[in-house]
Design a protein around this nucleic acid. Structure first.
Lengths: 216, 216
DNA sequence: CAAGTATTCAATAGATATATTGAATACTTG
DNA sequence: CAAGTATTCAATATATCTATTGAATACTTG
């Protein structure tokens, strides 16, 4: 293989991977699958996609070594192919949020609207958990919590929030987290609970970031 | 802004960034600019692109916060926007080469064809430079060397290789490097010099990887 | 094996990306 | 200011991507 052919082959392959990532719905699917495996139906429920369309996007991701599929009964369960990809994806998110002014602004406005500007980083959370008596609250749906969650967290899905609300002490500081920096569940939790007089902040990141950080 | 709107805005923005990266020629441009700033003409010379086409690709990169432009006299000099992006780009390359079977295979075959399979990593290079008397050879064009190079390297551009060849000792181990893992100059250097009986290996990475690694 | 369900396939129309061409702009230098 | 040069713009044809639709497949369960 000549030098030019080799370079073309490498850059074509690389561009193919990045093309598979360059669609907003596929990115949303990746966020969902970062929480644990999900069937096509599971994806359809949490996005605005139709069944056939979700299936096609999932196949693009599968054909480009981003997700893998496992069949069980009638269901096909998709999941992120490996932790290396998850780590790369998080690097992309982090770069975009920190270096692209437009996205940084949108994120900040969203947090301000929900009184969630004073987000806690994963590093801060770690020292807080060691030194203080904080309530770490996982506000994702229960089955995502079951697939995996931050050590020491309590599962309080958003739909159960109001009924469980009374059982929380207003003296204890609460940290809410969900799927990642783009997940709005934690923002909503902050808005609702701070309106009720609780001391609550959100985690800047989410469960997948914690998982990658604690792999060693 | 509603939760759905916020997510759409974030994922659209993210997809836009990734779309800008999802083209093989733009990736090659990024590799070239990783060596230091270059005019449009500089890009045209080292790729197969026409002037107008290169200019358009550069503008896509500029509009997506990947490169920045500086005007001097009639020339417009483009460069990578910041080290954070360079670091992200290198993460993508590393993932692709290690986790995508097709790319890994293509890279390995290229190295085998040039007797360059026994590449040295940046970590290995560091200990080698401390313990042995090795000749570190930068085989990129001279002006790229001048923009920046690995500490202790000697500039031996490929077009001067044959004339300078006589001055190298066959007893000393040689490590050749160029622009990065995809750069073929180092492979060619290995093939040529090993045929001449020299003890030579290539660096797995290139100058930009060394630069990011040594930022602190 | 019939009915039901989850998923995928195939075809298509509309949207977006890309390379090419020739012209326009902006700047420098004499 | 005229001529030359580097770069960008504008228009366009082709290729690729995407969502939608309706049907096909594969599997389970009664």
């Amino acid at each position: 293989m000549k030098g030019r052919e080799f370079k073309d082959a490498m850059y074509d392959g690389l561009a193919k991977l990045l093309k598979a990532l360059s669609n907003p719905y596929r990115l949303e699917i990746i966020e969902m699958l970062s929480q644990g495996e999900k069937s096509v139906e599971g994806i359809v429920q949490t996005t605005t996609l139709t069944f056939a369309n979700a299936s096609q996007h999932l196949q693009v991701l599968k054909n480009n070594n981003i997700v893998k599929a496992r069949k069980e009964k009638q269901y096909v369960f998709y999941s992120i192919i490996n932790d290396e990809f998850l780590s790369l994806y998080q690097h992309v998110i982090k770069y975009a949020v920190q270096e692209i002014a437009e996205l940084e602004k949108t994120l900040n406005r969203q947090r301000e609207d929900n009184n969630a500007s004073n987000a806690v980083s994963l590093d801060e959370l770690e020292t807080m958990l060691q030194n203080k008596d904080v309530l770490l609250m996982d506000v994702r749906p229960a089955f995502e919590f079951e697939f995996g969650h931050i050590t020491g967290a309590m599962s309080v899905p958003m739909n159960e929030m109001m009924s469980k609300l009374k059982s929380f002490s207003k003296d204890k500081e609460i940290i809410a987290y969900c799927r990642g920096p783009f997940c709005v569940l934690a923002d909503e939790a902050v808005r609702i609970l701070s309106e009720q007089g609780y001391s609550i902040r959100r985690l800047d990141e989410g469960y997948p970031e914690w998982k990658i950080k604690n792999l060693n």
